[in-house]
Amino acid sequence: MQIETLQKDMIAAMKAREKNRKDAISSLISAVKKAAIDEGCRDDIREELVDRVILKELKTVKEQIDSCPADRTDLLEEYKYRYDVINEYAPQLLSAEEVEQILKEKFSEVLASGNKGQIMKTVMPELKGKADGKVINQVVAKLCQ
């Protein structure tokens, strides 16, 4: 995802007077810019950074939904709307089958060792941001049996 896309969509939401959507996209842009400043690449924001921040924000909003009291329906609706908007921009993560295929193709020699710690250490840099950590862990556990 390009940061320019987010900025154009925020402007479109402002013109359409969709305050909640604009606020959700604006918070995403702010988080991306903050992460870019922290990493020292404020002038050249890479797509990988944007995707990573979007996934992090998505996880944060999901936690807000899960921890929101049931009697606060107004907050819950706001969190769910924000989750839906952020989810539109989230990159598609690899499925368990796709992760398994990648592991078998690229990491067959490491898988042969059967050392789960070593496998995870080798595999995670390759799949970070492309697949959910839980899915990777489950696939590795299955392949190590």
Rank of each mutant, 00 (worst) to 15 (best):
2 Q>V: 07
3 I>L: 15
5 T>A: 13
6 L>H: 10
7 Q>I: 14
8 K>M: 11
10 M>A: 05
12 A>M: 09
12 A>K: 11
13 A>M: 09
14 M>T: 11
14 M>K: 14
15 K>Q: 13
16 A>D: 08
20 N>I: 01
20 N>Q: 14
21 R>D: 07
21 R>F: 00
23 D>I: 06
23 D>P: 02
25 I>F: 01
25 I>G: 03
25 I>A: 08
30 S>L: 14
31 A>W: 06
32 V>M: 02
33 K>G: 01
34 K>A: 15
36 A>F: 12
39 E>H: 11
39 E>S: 14
39 E>L: 14
40 G>M: 13
40 G>D: 13
41 C>P: 10
42 R>P: 04
42 R>H: 13
42 R>G: 15
44 D>S: 14
45 I>F: 09
46 R>K: 15
46 R>S: 15
46 R>W: 09
48 E>I: 11
48 E>F: 03
49 L>Y: 10
50 V>I: 09
53 V>M: 06
54 I>Y: 09
54 I>K: 05
55 L>C: 03
56 K>M: 12
60 T>Y: 08
61 V>Q: 02
63 E>F: 02
64 Q>D: 12
66 D>G: 03
67 S>D: 06
69 P>T: 06
70 A>C: 02
71 D>I: 06
71 D>W: 00
75 L>P: 03
75 L>F: 07
77 E>F: 06
80 K>S: 05
80 K>P: 04
80 K>M: 01
81 Y>L: 10
83 Y>H: 12
86 I>C: 05
87 N>D: 07
88 E>S: 08
91 P>D: 05
95 S>T: 15
97 E>G: 02
97 E>I: 04
97 E>W: 07
98 E>T: 01
99 V>G: 11
100 E>I: 02
102 I>F: 04
103 L>P: 09
104 K>G: 00
104 K>T: 07
105 E>H: 10
107 F>Y: 08
108 S>G: 01
108 S>T: 04
109 E>A: 12
110 V>A: 11
110 V>I: 13
113 S>F: 03
114 G>V: 05
114 G>L: 01
116 K>Q: 13
117 G>L: 08
117 G>R: 09
118 Q>V: 00
118 Q>E: 11
119 I>M: 11
122 T>K: 13
122 T>I: 03
125 P>L: 08
126 E>A: 14
127 L>Q: 05
131 A>L: 00
132 D>P: 03
132 D>W: 08
135 V>Y: 05
135 V>A: 03
138 Q>L: 10
139 V>L: 03
140 V>M: 04
140 V>I: 15
140 V>A: 09
141 A>N: 14
